[in-house]
Design a protein around this nucleic acid. Structure first.
Lengths: 261, 261
DNA sequence: TTGCTCAACTTGTTGGTACAAGCTGATGTG
DNA sequence: CACATCAGCTTGTACCAACAAGTTGAGCAA
């Protein structure tokens, strides 16, 4: 019976059925799903089995749950980030650029800032071509949009650079921007290498970005180069469900006419 | 007692303890974790509670489980993909380039290929500036490295282009490459826009890429432009745990000396 | 030696129960 | 009316039990 298809476990059948109904619009973005008890009746399965099915959809990022409220279909509102704009050659979204962008989009920006004297972890040291464990300055930024955590940004500067640019250790934003400050000292960033990766958040990241289950993070590492050597390495961590990155390369004159914003 | 820290549920304590031990190297990449029964004794918790803790680590992508074998710490072997190399302006990893790259890395490439006459889904239609639902040709590629599924690639060509370039509908690879073929017809790709996003895989993607729980996919959309209008849109889906993307922009002469490969 | 069987391990699935804890609206008191 | 309380919903945590199903190695048979 049932068409001879492979016999799926019951919790999977539950997940598949609900996923179909979500995809087909029976439950649209933001809609509330029936309670575990109701689903238990409908599928003739125990609450545990229903929960297994639901938790599958949660870890797929399709729905989320809150105690006392129920399950609801996640709504995705993405923010597109243009990583190849020329003004960003200098720095991925410096403080001012970020505030301006967000305000222009009709949203309310907010950020906290911190400077730390630390040692370069291996990953950073490799990219700055310094010894792992050597001293470095970390400028850390935690960004919000409409009070929703959006991204964290950690920029590491190598020891030798800090000696020539002591204001990098100043707590608080540098008014003219770190790039202009460095340029004024004759240290010009002439190129960068970006690396993009994704994975599930660490508990620390999940806390800072208020990420629920089933949402990956997008990791953006930008290493900036002077003509002689790397001068900084920035790791930006985004909520994967809220962000997308853009690179535009070559002649795109055929594009701009049709694009909004 | 216990230092007055917030009282975490037991399954979380289990996950945290094991995560610490994995991070600290007690269980290295590929190592097998103690069985549920052993952990049950160690933490004085029921098997279900232990399973809750373990499934947390699974959905973080830290470990994986197989029936009959146990849980093991995932090993991450990443493949770096340079998206801004000039030869890739024409096409993200055309068939030959892919085979060459993989062979050079001492691995064994393998791919299956398919051509379909279809209608453009909304997402594609937007980027090709054609009407959603209008006819399009889809060239689909499923790639493996050492028989491990690596990526899927779906390239859509708009109807008007296919009329001028009928060989696009040929099943099987086009020997000289689609880009050269199109260039020979006077259709030159002069720029592209890349979009990068991440999310958890759909069941279909999980099947094709053999992705377990806790591994996101990396979505790479490249829209190629002629001087007049978009000519193709390629969506490549990568396993997030096996791939990383690179963009190099500007003068990186200070870099090459130190980089391997 | 070779090859098969099977016991003993592992995780996977499904059922049950009980209580904790978060949320909402009805109810009743001031 | 304003406000506190609480019943009744929701999901979260934790336990128990039983059997299914995949894997491995010991041990026996040919």
């Amino acid at each position: 019976m049932m068409g001879g298809m492979s016999k799926q476990p019951k919790y999977r059948q539950v997940a598949d059925a609900l996923r179909r109904e979500i995809d087909s619009g029976t439950y649209g973005p933001g809609a509330r799903l029936p309670s575990e008890a109701e689903l238990s009746t409908r599928f003739d399965a125990s609450r545990n089995t229903i929960r297994s099915g639901l938790s599958l959809l949660v870890s797929e990022g399709l729905i989320s749950s809150s105690q006392g409220l129920g399950y609801e279909v996640r709504k995705h509102e993405v923010f597109v980030l243009n990583a190849s704009k020329f003004e960003n050659l200098s720095f991925p979204q410096n403080g001012d650029a970020y505030s301006t962008d967000v305000t222009n989009a009709g949203r309310r920006p907010h950020q906290t800032f911190r400077v730390e004297l630390t040692t370069a972890p291996e990953y950073i040291a490799e990219r700055l071509t310094v010894d792992a464990g050597s001293r470095a300055v970390l400028r850390f930024c935690h960004r919000f949009v409409d009070d929703v955590p959006w991204s964290t940004q950690a920029t590491h500067y190598p020891d030798w650079l800090v000696e020539r640019a002591p204001r990098l250790t100043e707590p608080g934003d540098i008014a003219e921007g770190t790039t202009r400050y460095l340029a004024g000292l004759g240290i010009e960033q002439v190129g960068y290498a970006d690396e993009i990766a994704t994975r599930m958040p660490t508990p620390e990241e999940a806390r800072l970005l208020e990420i629920g289950a089933g949402v990956p993070v997008l990791l953006w590492t930008r290493t900036g180069y002077s003509p002689e050597r790397p001068i900084r390495c920035t790791i930006t961590t985004f909520r994967g469900d809220l962000n997308r990155m853009n690179y535009e390369i070559g002649d795109l004159s055929a594009r701009s006419e049709n694009e909004p914003q």
